[in-house]
Design a protein around this nucleic acid. Structure first.
Ligand code: SF4
Ligand code: SF4
Lengths: 168, 168
DNA sequence: TTGAAACAGGACTATTTTTGTCCGGTTGCG
DNA sequence: CGCAACCGGACAAAAATAGTCCTGTTTCAA
């Protein structure tokens, strides 16, 4: 599992689409400026999203990108996998590249468990949910001192100990 | 959060120490051969572990490394953090490098949640636990066809859907 | 029909991170 | 003393990330 900027930009880009009327076509350029992302990089990323059927592109003047599915049905995990391909937290289970220890290694099981957990988190968050909580990049620069937006997948019941260092 | 090979090697190295009588001193060389890790790289890694007080080094002939604490008390998270420094799944909250969106970005909360989950997993696994399930590298090559060792932090009650692709 | 507007896609480059290697120094033992 | 081991920093190779750029191709509309 990588979670590189490409994934991040992809999510931000989709949020930009999601906060307009469904079906509206937006140019790359506009999204890029709105979320402060290098436009040519975003171009690449949206190509992946288009291949992943999350977004539809149209060319020519008046062209751009629009959401294909409603934002409620698009999970963060789908977005990430569309951009990064099949994810893996470690090299343990990558089909072919698989380590020769594989069957006998305890770590491999531990890593798989961790990966499953993050997949859980990402697959339980939708673009629509996130869109509701998001303030687009351009505006944020004037609104720094609000507290951090927290995300709780389903009705928050958690150790909290781990999160508190963030609040500090 | 990185989970690079350095972390992996660190864990494997500690497992090598953990499966001997407590307090035994083992040379780098031996550990490296046993788990099939480049010896000079492992040297670097064990330096970090020593700085993190997980392991004690002694020099001179007859020197080597020994566990300082009992393997039951060492969590995977501690090992990873000793090797990689303070971990972060994304660039969102890295003290100084923090993004200017920060306070207004929904993704940041989502990422933090995911990171907390993997910390949970890694902090609930001890070296001792893993040691019990592990077959050192050298032996594995002859024992490939046993099924994968699974790790369940506490008494397994999980979706399982995500894990099944691994079994396939 | 022509031209400009927009994305498609591949090749390319720059930067950063990971994954090591090397070697002189230091410490401890006999 | 002299060897055996780790220490620690500088260095180097390789891989991954983060982009850029340029040549299409499609579409719209004058
Ligand atoms: S954790 Fe174990 S199985 Fe996974 S790549 Fe490392 S040695 Fe192989
Ligand atoms: S996810 Fe949001 S807060 Fe985090 S680095 Fe990206 S833009 Fe900044």
């Amino acid at each position: 599992m990588q979670i590189t900027r490409a994934s991040e930009y992809a999510m931000l880009g989709l949020l930009a689409l999601a906060r307009r009327p469904m079906g509206e076509v937006v140019m790359l350029d506009v999204v890029a400026r709105e979320e402060d992302i290098p436009v040519s990089f975003l171009g690449k990323i949206f190509q992946s999203l288009a291949r992943g059927k999350l977004v539809k592109s149209s060319r020519g003047s008046g062209g751009g990108f629009m959401l294909v599915r409603s934002p409620e049905t698009i999970t963060a995990l789908e977005v990430i996998e569309a951009v990064e391909g099949p994810v893996s937290l470690t090299r343990c289970l990558d089909e072919d590249t698989g380590c020769e220890h594989a069957g006998g290694c305890a770590l491999c099981g531990l890593f798989a468990e961790a990966q499953d957990r993050v997949k859980e988190v990402f697959s339980s968050a939708t673009v629509a949910q996130l869109s509701g909580r998001h303030i687009p990049g351009g505006m944020v620069r004037q609104a720094r001192q609000r507290e951090r937006i927290v995300f709780r997948p389903q009705r928050a019941a958690k150790p909290a100990a781990l999160t508190e260092k963030n609040a500090a």
